[in-house]
Amino acid sequence: MLGANDPNLLVLVSLAAGPRHGHAILLDVREFAGVRLGPGTLYGAIGRLEADGLIEAMPLDGRRRPYRITGEGRAALGDRLGGLNQAVQTGLRRMERSA
């Protein structure tokens, strides 16, 4: 609903806190959103975000490669969260009025 469980959005929100590798992103998303991303879904999202220039890969750290959000990614995330927030606020106001 409202795309709040969109893997792209969840990955961007996770990386907004700082660089993380795939496993850390999975654990973070599970904690803050209660959503368990599968490895294919996660790396599908990482691939799309990387191709769009919203995140970028960092040098390998052992067997793990961290990713970080780019300036463009931060702006896109802000726009998306702003849109979601507006929808949430509007919904809450209407719920209050109709109660």
Binding site: P39, G40, G47
Partner: peptide
């Protein structure tokens, strides 16, 4: 591009056949 990382994730994470299905879909 991603095989090495995903293989590491498979080894490290605590999941099940659902992950295999997710990877097949991917």
């Amino acid at each position: 591009r991603y095989g090495f990382e995903v293989a590491g994730l498979i080894d490290d994470s605590d999941s099940s056949l659902a992950d295999a299905a997710d990877l097949a879909r991917s």
